[in-house]
């Protein structure tokens, strides 16, 4: 009975995520079709925008497919040591070109020096990447999208932040309820489907970790807290 309930919940979540990804994919596909039409009409373009739109779309599809493979790991993921700094650096590098093509910029803000944390690096990487993509689309101007880490009483808080998107806990709860069924689940923050946020939330759920509203310096964003490991801190 419990197993059936779990499967039904998983299937609902999968449909929800698939709807969000499908909704998102309309955008890069529309760019491509429009560019083809404009090129046929004699306009000349740099291929960068199309390339970045395709890259962003593929990253989201990959993150969704990755979630599909780990969602069934009922015994839990194998945790290992990872450096948050290098993980975020890698995510920022992957997002940089996409951000530039949308007149946004990705910045790293790692406040202090931290030892390794116990996590599942691939899942955390996919979640941060998806979240970063959602923020780049939401911001779409010169305001930076910041990947940040800071210490709190409960551990290391790592997330994606921006100056011009103020997310509240109510908005986050509402967005989770609307995800997959509404084109714009976070209207005050973004005109987009924010599918990256929805996928990040699902990935972190498997980790398991919770995506929460957080502040970093003067910016607002979405983050998770990784509990410090006293043994690792000694390394």
């Amino acid at each position: 009975m419990a197993q059936a309930h779990h499967t039904a919940r998983e299937s609902h979540q999968s449909n929800q995520l698939l709807s969000a990804v499908a909704e998102h994919m309309k955008l890069p596909l529309l760019y491509m079709r429009q560019h083809a039409e404009l090129v046929r009409g004699g306009e000349s373009f740099s291929p960068d925008i199309i390339e970045s739109a395709a890259d962003a779309g593929m990253m989201l599809v990959d993150s969704y497919l990755y979630w599909q493979t780990i969602a069934h790991h009922t015994e839990g993921l194998d945790m290992e040591q990872a450096s948050l700094t290098s993980l975020l650096y890698d995510v920022a590098h992957s997002l940089d070109k996409i951000a530039k093509s949308q007149n946004a910029q990705v910045q790293l803000d790692i406040y202090g020096r931290y030892g390794p944390v116990m996590t599942h690096p691939k899942t955390l990487h996919a979640a941060m990447l998806s979240l970063g993509l959602a923020y780049i689309e939401a911001v779409q101007d010169d305001a930076p999208v910041v990947l940040g880490v800071h210490k709190s009483r409960w551990g290391l808080v790592t997330g994606v932040y921006s100056e011009n998107t103020a997310v509240t806990s109510d908005m986050l709860t509402c967005a989770k309820q609307l995800s997959g069924s509404a084109r714009q689940p976070m209207p005050a923050t973004s005109h987009t489907s924010m599918s990256g946020f929805i996928i990040a939330d699902a990935l972190l759920d498997v980790l398991p970790a919770k995506l929460r509203v957080a502040k970093h310096r003067r910016m607002s964003g979405l983050a998770l807290t990784l509990a410090p490991n006293p043994q690792l801190a000694l390394l």
Partner: peptide, 25 residues
Amino acid sequence: EPDKRLASNYALALTGHGHDVRTAT
């Protein structure tokens, strides 16, 4: 149009047909 890339495509197409276009996000 909130998406600047789409706005730019629509603007290009319309100016190509002689329209005077301004965009707002």
